[in-house]
Simulated assay, not measured.
Amino acid sequence: MMNILLILILQLIYVPIYTLRIIFLVKQMKFTASILGFLEALIYVFGLSLIFSGDQSVIAMIVYALGFAIGIAMGGYIEEKLAIGYTKLAINLIHNNEKLISELRNAGFGVTVFVGEGKDSIRYQLEILTSRNREKELIETIKRFEPSAFIISYEPKQHIGGFLTKPIYDILKKKKI
C-alpha cells in the first residue's frame, strides 16, 4: 500500500515538471528546461522502478496512470498561474471607441489603432501586446466597454522594441549615467 501512495505522489510531482519543462523549452528557456529535465528523469526512473519491481500490481499501474492524468491538470494549472511570456490581442470594433482606448492606455497598455474596410463598413482594430498575466484584466476591460468586440489572442514567439520594452531601456539608460 505504501508503494501505491508513493507512485501517486511521484506522478503528481513528475508530470507537472514534465509539463513545465516542455513549456520552458518552447519559450526558449533552455537552462531552466534542462534542470527540470534532470528532475523529471530522476523521478521517472524511480517511479518506474517501483512499478516493475517484484510483482506488477494492476492497482499500481492504474494509480500510475491516474497520477499522470491528475499531474497533467496540475501542470496546466501551474503554467496558467505562472503566465510566462506575452500575449498579443487583436480587437475588432465597429466604432472607434475613444473611451476604451483611453482606459486601456491609462491602465498601462500600449494600444495601436488601425482603420480597415469591412464587408459593410469601416472597422477599427486595436492591437495590444501585453504580458500574459494581464491578459484576463485586458479582456475584462474590453468587454466592459465593448461587449460585442471580436477578440483574437495569440502568443508571439518574440518581440523587439515597442511600448513594453521602453521602460526597460529607460532603466538601463539611468544606470549608465
Score class of each variant (00 low, 15 high):
Asn97Val: 02
Glu98Lys: 14
Ala83Tyr: 02
Gly67Tyr: 01
Leu8Glu: 07
Phe46His: 09
Gly161Pro: 07
Leu50Met: 03
Ala73Val: 15
Ile151Asn: 07
Gly71Gln: 03
Leu172Trp: 13
Tyr124Ala: 05
Ser121Pro: 05
Gly110Thr: 00
Ile91Arg: 00
Leu66Gln: 07
Leu25Thr: 06
Leu6Val: 15
Val111Ile: 03
Gly37Leu: 02
Ile70Val: 10
Ile84Phe: 02
Ala90Asn: 14
Pro156Tyr: 09
Ser148Met: 12
Leu5Gln: 05
Ile4Glu: 11
Lys174Arg: 15
Leu25Ala: 09
Pro167Ile: 05
Ala60His: 12
Lys176Glu: 12
Val63Ser: 10
His159Lys: 13
Leu100Val: 05
Val63Lys: 06
Met61Lys: 08
Leu50Arg: 02
Ile122Ala: 11
Glu80Trp: 01
Thr32Lys: 12
Ile17Gly: 14
Ile152Lys: 09
Glu79Asp: 12
Val15Trp: 12
Phe52His: 02
Leu20Met: 05
Phe145Gln: 06
Ile94Gly: 10
Gly110Trp: 01
Ala69Phe: 05
Ile160Phe: 07
Ser148His: 11
Ile17Arg: 09
Ile4Trp: 01
Asn97Phe: 01
His95Ala: 13
Ala73Gln: 15
Leu129Tyr: 06
Ser34Trp: 08
Lys143Cys: 02
Phe38Gln: 02
Tyr77Phe: 06
Gly37Phe: 01
Val113Ile: 10
Ile84Thr: 02
Ala65Glu: 13
Thr130Gln: 09
Lys27Phe: 00
Gly47Tyr: 07
Ser49Gln: 10
Ser153Arg: 10
Thr141Asn: 07
Gly118Gln: 03
Gly37Met: 03
Tyr44Gly: 04
Ala90Trp: 03
Tyr169Met: 14
Pro16Val: 01
Phe114Trp: 08
Ile72Gly: 11
Met29Phe: 06
Val15Asp: 08
Ala65Arg: 09
Lys143Val: 05
Lys173His: 12
Asn96Lys: 13
Arg134Pro: 06
Tyr86Cys: 03
Ser102Gly: 13
Leu172Ile: 15
Glu135Met: 12
Arg21Val: 03
Tyr169Asn: 15
